[in-house]
């Protein structure tokens, strides 16, 4: 009796073992196919704009950002050292060039000061509200940039916790990089101005022609929706027009580098290969007409007529938005 139970138990365990082995063989044989089908299904689902995808992507960004930042540091140092070796050799020429730049910029500084005084006087005489000034910004480090021809996005190590919001403009010391399109707690994604999905309303500095800068996924975006008789030419500077109400007006983007048929190619100022640190411009809420300050003489005349007894207060100050810890100052 006892030996019979043992035998039955043995046969059961051997059958169980066979089943496990068969399942394992099936998994090895067809596992790749099943997972490939699953991957394809996920790609199709992603096209349907499922909300949980955004959450997963944000979480993944938050988790990966510190690891990428740590891994990037020694590699960036190595790259900087290699670059420094090259620049030491060209120190004499660079010094001469910087002296020349300094002389030229001093002339421009004097001119800018004169123009600012003149601009203020003209604004006062036209009773225009004062210029809002340069926006506040916070600095972030670019920790991931997959590159490649399919997406032009980058991950930065500052998110909602630092005050980053969707739609904020991102610049480096050369010009506009792009705008924030996805925000996690500790990371955010920049949609570069070269991405296929990027559309930025722009203004040509010299000719005042307006257009839309469209990304091509290459290094050089193109101008679309051009005016009927444009008067721009190669070399003209392209700035943000601020027409979308999202990006601030007057941010430098690049120069028109080529005009052929209907294609107007813009070369951005940003050095895409050295995008280590960027500034996220903290968006300022537009003041309502009631919040705008009135010139003293105008207020004295209009207030009694409108039946308003006290003067209108200023719009919320820029210093109130964005955490002070990360806020670096004003963009130049």
């Amino acid at each position: 009796m006892r030996s019979g139970t043992v035998r039955r138990g043995d046969s059961l365990s051997s059958e169980w073992g066979k089943m496990v082995l068969a399942a394992r063989a099936l998994a090895v044989r067809y596992g790749v196919v099943v997972l490939m089908a699953l991957s394809l299904g996920l790609i199709v689902l992603g096209k349907a704009d499922v909300k949980i995808y955004d959450t997963i992507v944000r979480r993944a960004g938050d988790i990966a950002a510190p690891a990428l930042a740590t891994l990037k540091e020694p590699l960036s140092t190595l790259r900087d050292m290699a670059n420094a070796m090259g620049s030491i050799l060209a120190l004499r020429e660079e010094n001469q060039r910087l002296r020349e730049d300094n002389r030229r910029l001093l002339v421009w500084q004097a001119e800018a000061t004169r123009l600012a005084v003149e601009n203020d006087a003209l604004r006062r005489s036209l009773k225009m509200p004062p210029h809002p000034g340069a926006p506040l910004w916070l600095t972030a480090r670019v920790v991931a940039d997959p590159g490649g021809p399919f997406v032009n996005t980058a991950l930065i190590d500052a998110g909602a916790d630092a005050g980053v919001q969707n739609g904020m403009a991102v610049v480096d010391d050369h010009g506009l990089v792009g705008r924030i399109v996805d925000v996690g707690a500790r990371s955010a994604r920049i949609l570069m101005l070269t991405d296929l999905n990027s559309r930025i309303p722009v203004l040509i500095d010299r000719s005042h022609d307006e257009a839309v800068l469209e990304g091509t996924n290459g290094r050089q975006p193109e101008l679309r929706f051009l005016p009927m008789n444009p008067s721009f030419k190669v070399g003209d500077q392209v700035l943000t027009s601020g027409r979308d109400g999202v990006l601030p007006q007057g941010l430098r983007i690049g120069k028109i580098s080529e005009i052929r048929d209907q294609h107007v190619v813009v070369t951005p100022y940003v050095d895409w290969d050295r995008l280590d640190y960027v500034a996220v411009l903290v968006r300022q809420p537009l003041p309502t007409p009631e919040e705008l300050p009135l010139p003293a003489s105008d207020a004295a005349v209009s207030a009694p007529a409108a039946g308003v007894a006290k003067p209108v207060e200023r719009a919320p100050t820029r210093g109130q938005s964005g955490p002070a810890a990360r806020t670096g100052g004003r963009a130049e």
């Binding site: 596992g31 699953l38 991957s39 394809l40 790609i43 995808y53 960004g61 997959p146």
Partner: peptide, 27 residues
């Protein structure tokens, strides 16, 4: 295969690529 699949998903999420693209490539 499962390790490749999971690594691919993470890579897509971090890179901002459509989820499943890198996983499919690795598989």
């Amino acid at each position: 295969s499962i390790v490749l699949f999971l690594l691919g998903l993470v890579a897509d999420a971090v890179a901002g690529m459509p989820i499943g693209m890198t996983a499919l490539m690795l598989l």
